[in-house]
């Protein structure tokens, strides 16, 4: 499965770079994340609850960052497995300064899935993946704003993790949106 896209952040390239290296922020941003910690240089371990249609369960895995070209690009390798199957992915992340406190992040990668996740969940996984990424960016936008506010107000930043309920609701909304979009484009 191919995963690619881009997102425009409000913040400097360095701020965005730092954001992606903050495990607390990342854990909050990725829905269903129960734990995320740095276990070695550029190696993180995470436990995440994933639900794709009828397939649900806990995944544990490793995330490794490599080929770092600070603050422009890096490669991310994910390797996780759990009762519903496994996933493995490699992707490149590129940050580009757009001026005016704007940074464009582009990402592209290949994800392999297996087990029940592939066998029963593959019809839905594309939408679910996009939904997770979309929600993550929303959280990260908020995090950037919160960090700026906190700095200007001279307090500690407070990151809020959306509940799994919020997450499930958003996935459902995205699925419906997707169906409607498809229907719309067919009619057009």
């Amino acid at each position: 499965m191919k995963v690619e896209g881009e997102h425009l952040f409000t913040g400097t390239q360095q701020q965005v770079w730092d954001l992606f290296r903050n495990t607390e922020v990342m854990a909050a941003a990725l829905p269903g994340t129960k734990k995320m910690e740095l276990v070695g240089e550029n190696t993180y371990e995470a436990i995440m609850n994933v639900r794709v249609g009828p397939v649900a369960g806990e995944f544990s895995g490793q995330l490794v960052l490599s080929n770092e070209d600070h603050p422009n690009s890096y490669t991310m390798t994910v390797d996780g497995r759990g009762k519903p199957g496994f996933l493995k992915g490699v992707g490149d992340v590129i940050l580009a300064d757009q001026g005016a406190n704007q940074t464009l992040m582009g990402y592209s990668g290949e994800v392999q899935i297996g087990g029940k996740l592939a066998a029963v969940g593959q019809r839905l996984i594309d939408t679910v993946a996009k939904s997770i990424i979309g929600q993550a960016f929303e959280t990260l936008d908020n995090a950037l704003a919160e960090r700026e506010n906190a700095e200007s107000e001279g307090r500690e930043a407070d990151y809020h993790q959306s509940s799994e309920g919020d997450y499930a609701a958003t996935v459902a909304k995205d699925l419906i949106k997707n169906v409607l979009k498809r229907k719309g484009s067919e009619e057009a």
Binding site: Q112, I113, G114, G115, A118, A119, V120, Q122, R123
Partner: peptide
Amino acid sequence: YDENAQLLNASLAD
């Protein structure tokens, strides 16, 4: 089957 020999429609729904 995908390129990893994973069966992508192993249910009577798919």
